[in-house]
Design a binder for these strands. Structure first.
Length: 423
RNA sequence: GUGGGUGUAGUCAAGCGGUUAAGACACAGGGUUGUGGCUCCUGCAUUCGUGGGUUCGAUUCCCAUCACCCACCCCA
């Protein structure tokens, strides 16, 4: 117990963390090119924010939140998603007074009490973007295009982009009535889960995996056919924009986001290579969220992208992430005089931007070389009495085994020159 | 919350009722006193997730429990 990380959490070990740096850096660079600016919000928020934002009848709010009371009797919740906190910060700091639209990005941990499985953890990480202040489908296309370019830029090829419109509160409610009316005579035949969905979220039934429900749902009315004029025009605009950008998508009327705040555009990027939890990126438009949590009536659109799933996909696709070099120079020493000299040299080298290391376990010279090899040192500087007496050091190229004497003044220039040569 | 699978060293594993629990990789040390990668030698589980039970005897069979994995649900 003491030595077990809590269920559904994972350590990211030094041997793996470079992959995280890689995708995070790629994301930040993409954000910068698309002119999104980072916003950092607290890991926890008032519970009420998510109840209002995400919706208090959603699975997330009903049974998945890490909620606790703090010592001041406030109900606090660890972020289960990234959008509501950004909206809260936007409203609280009156960022709507800045030039619009506002474009934010974030890289955050999220927490949901789920039963862990492949691609699903209780603490997971999301990179996301949000555009506030425009209801133009330019923004939706930009957000989707961003995801597409970012994922493509990482070398990921075989994702499927699915888009849908889930309408606005008006046309959606109208559609739900129509759908319920269609399903009512078949209600008894529906699977147990779908009986539950009938009231709560009948649109989900269209997407049920049970063959029975699949059959029952044949010929059911589609949301897309019941969009109001405004929503229909918006969806057409979106498709026009995506076509113009050459982004391939399929319209999937089954996409229903599990967060209440979505309106109109809903989309996801799905992989079939990483098991059942294949959605690596999901998002959409939320035109009433900002208003709903107490801000001005400002529309928004954005996505969240699962870092763990992204890494799984890259691994499944055989995309190798370059592992950074971790050591330029190892300093091998013999004797106390050399040890003291080496210590100072190591510090000087480090301060000059060279990755340097030496042994601190008192290994003999052979052991030090073995250690240097283990650390993948590119060079080993050897210092012993011979060298000290002559005021030189020996520098060995570990790849070629070439070793040559270098004067003390030349150590740094030599290593720097070598380093530059490789760049 | 509901199902299914798996648990033997740091990792991958063999053993599946019977005396000291294979092997490989990794790790540590060494091959005569200043040089790594290759090679050779040595070391590395009184114990098979944990607790019960069956048995003369259990890593092997049974039950419980825990952990991990996978699927449903839901979503990133």
């Amino acid at each position: 117990m003491l030595t077990n990380a809590p269920k559904g959490t994972k350590d990211i070990l030094p041997s793996q963390v470079y992959k995280w740096h890689y995708v995070e850096n790629a994301f930040r660079e993409a954000c910068s090119r698309y002119v999104f600016r980072e916003i950092r919000t607290p890991v926890f928020e008032h519970t009420e924010l998510f109840a209002r934002g995400v919706g208090d009848t959603t699975d997330i709010v009903e049974k998945q939140m890490y909620t606790f009371e703090d010592y001041g009797k406030r109900s606090i919740t660890l972020k289960p998603e990234g959008t509501s906190p950004v909206v809260r910060a936007f409203v609280e700091n009156k960022l709507y007074a800045d030039v619009q639209p506002s474009k934010f990005y974030y890289v955050i941990p999220c927490f949901r009490y789920e039963k862990p499985q492949s691609g699903r953890l209780r603490e997971f990480h999301q990179m996301g973007i949000e555009v506030f202040g425009t209801d133009n489908m330019m923004a939706d296309a930009e957000v989707i295009g961003f995801a597409s370019d970012f994922l493509g830029g990482l070398g990921i090829q075989d994702l499927e982009l699915r888009i849908n419109s889930i309408g606005c509160p008006k046309c959606r409610e109208n559609y739900r009535q129509v759908l319920r009316a269609f399903l009512e005579p078949k209600y008894e035949e529906l699977c147990e889960t779908c009986k539950g969905r009938y009231e709560k979220n009948p649109m989900r039934i269209l997407d049920c995996k049970s063959p029975v429900c699949q059959a029952l749902v044949k010929g059911a009315p589609l949301m897309l056919d019941y969009l109001c004029d405004e929503c229909k025009t918006a969806f057409d605009d979106l498709k026009t924009n995506l076509d113009a950008m050459g982004i391939r998508y399929i319209v999937d009327p089954g996409i229903v986001r599990g967060l209440d705040y979505y309106t109109k555009t809903a989309f996801e990027f799905v992989s079939d290579k990483i098991g059942a939890q294949g959605t690596v990126c999901g998002g959409g438009r939320y035109d009433h969220l900002i208003e709903q949590i107490g801000g001005p009536p400002i529309p928004g659109v954005g996505f969240g992208l699962g870092v763990e799933r992204l890494l799984l996909i890259m691994e499944a696709a055989g995309i190798t992430i370059p592992e950074p070099e971790n050591l330029d120079v190892f300093i091998a020493v013999m004797g106390e005089r050399a040890r003291v000299f080496g210590l100072k040299l190591m510090r000087d080298l480090r301060n000059q931007g060279i990755k340097a290391e030496m042994d601190s376990l008192g290994r003999n010279i052979k052991g030090q070389f073995k250690y240097a090899d283990r650390l993948h040192a590119k060079y080993t500087v050897v210092i012993g009495d011979n060298e000290l007496d002559q005021n030189i050091v020996s520098i060995k190229n570990m790849a070629t085994s070439e070793q040559k004497p270098v004067s003390l003044q030349e150590i740094l220039p030599t290593l720097k020159a070598q380093q530059n040569q490789e760049l």
